[in-house]
Design a protein around this nucleic acid. Structure first.
Lengths: 219, 219
DNA sequence: ATAACAATTGAACCGTGTTTCATTTCTTTG
DNA sequence: CAAAGAAATGAAACACGGTTCAATTGTTAT
């Protein structure tokens, strides 16, 4: 304290805030890319720092922990997917038709995304993120359940517990894609094989929903 | 070398071999019990040693690594389940009837086992065991596929890819049980709730198989 | 220019859980 | 009983990854 002149404190300026936000986004983006390439297990905090061009310690100025960082990454990544899925749910048509479109949308996008989809859907992670993954699957299930309920009310589907059925359909999709998603070149993208897989999956899911032939009104 | 008399070497005698086998079994059994109680993540090698009444290091005389130990534990545990499932597959009846029995068997046993089933079916583990788990699900899928193929040939089920359908059914079962298996007291064993769950699951799986009404012969 | 303070660095830290190994205990054989 | 060697011990070493923090660099305001 040499002299009494009060020097004003450093304040967070817009320019600085922008810089911070950019770094934060850079970290999240690097994490997303690494997870998409190496999976969750194969992505350490130092790896992310290197990929983002910053230091390990800096990560922790922007995120309190690795778990929270990935929570954000996963949520952001899944928002896109869920939006696409929700859009498919809104096309007009009978419940079975809509369901078919939804399942196909899900499957095609997952097969395109591969490793990221695998990380989101099935890759083993710690218990904290495990709960998150269930939360990630839930929106799909809810959208399916909604369509099923409407289909039942409209007499397009047999009577059933739409909640359980929707869970079954989500499980069916994930399990079917699990194999292809695990093998790097399980079935080539855009191949005949992929088409056959998706067709069979869609058919099975529609059957699970139990479409009624054509009974518009009670006899 | 005090005196020239050649003292014969120690040789592995039947008695000793029996002892070794017993210890090995003891280790595997302790591991199984601990996994059933605390899950895979919550079971360390020292824990197993303590439960088996031996030292940590001894484990490594009997198993080269923790991964191999659990491989054996999981395989042995699943043998029982698969045997029960295979038995359910052999009861006489139509394909839909048999499938219903199989699904119910699987679900009831899994809900009874809880933590062990969860460890086998869904608990996050390392990548080595991940492949094992897929191998663990495969026998169920194969048995279902077999029943489906027979049902299709017999005209009891609609035309379909039985492989994909069987994968879907396995996924449906696992996904449906995942919730209850995760929550310690999700739905009480032997409860009304459990019955409803199993009924809905069985119904959904049978629909997935696509039973045909009653068309014994082509018109 | 320089005080004040935030952001960044990266090597060290720490907890957890697996694996090792010098030592001890036990079993068999002459 | 003594020698030989396998089996068991358990404390210590190790590996791995996330997290921390003292030192440094960068930015703002006077």
């Amino acid at each position: 304290m040499k002299h009494g002149s009060i020097v004003m404190a450093y304040r967070r300026t817009p320019r600085m805030q922008q810089r911070i936000d950019a770094t934060r986004a850079q970290i999240a983006d690097a994490a997303r890319r690494l997870v998409a390439a190496a999976g969750y297990a194969g992505t350490g905090v130092p790896d992310i720092a290197r990929a983002a061009g910053i230091s390990t310690g800096s990560i922790y100025r922007h995120f309190p922990s690795k778990a929270v960082l990935f929570q954000e990454v996963f949520q952001k990544a899944s928002r896109h997917e869920i939006a696409a899925f929700a859009q498919a749910a809104q096309v007009p048509g009978t419940a079975p038709e809509r369901l078919a479109g939804m399942v196909e949308t899900f499957a095609r996008r997952a097969l395109q995304g591969r490793t990221l989809a695998r990380a989101l859907l099935v890759e083993p992670v710690g218990p904290e993120l495990d709960a998150d993954r269930r939360r990630f699957r839930a929106p799909y299930q809810a959208l399916i359940e909604e369509v099923l309920s409407e289909g039942i009310a409209a007499g397009e589907l047999v009577g059933q517990d739409p909640r359980i059925t929707s869970i079954c359909i989500v499980g069916a999709i994930v399990e079917t894609l699990l194999g292809p998603l695990s093998e790097p070149s399980g079935c080539e993208q855009g191949s005949e094989e992929e088409d056959a897989l998706v067709r069979a999956l869609v058919a099975a899911c529609v059957r699970t929903a139990g479409p009624l032939p054509l009974a518009p009104r009670s006899e």
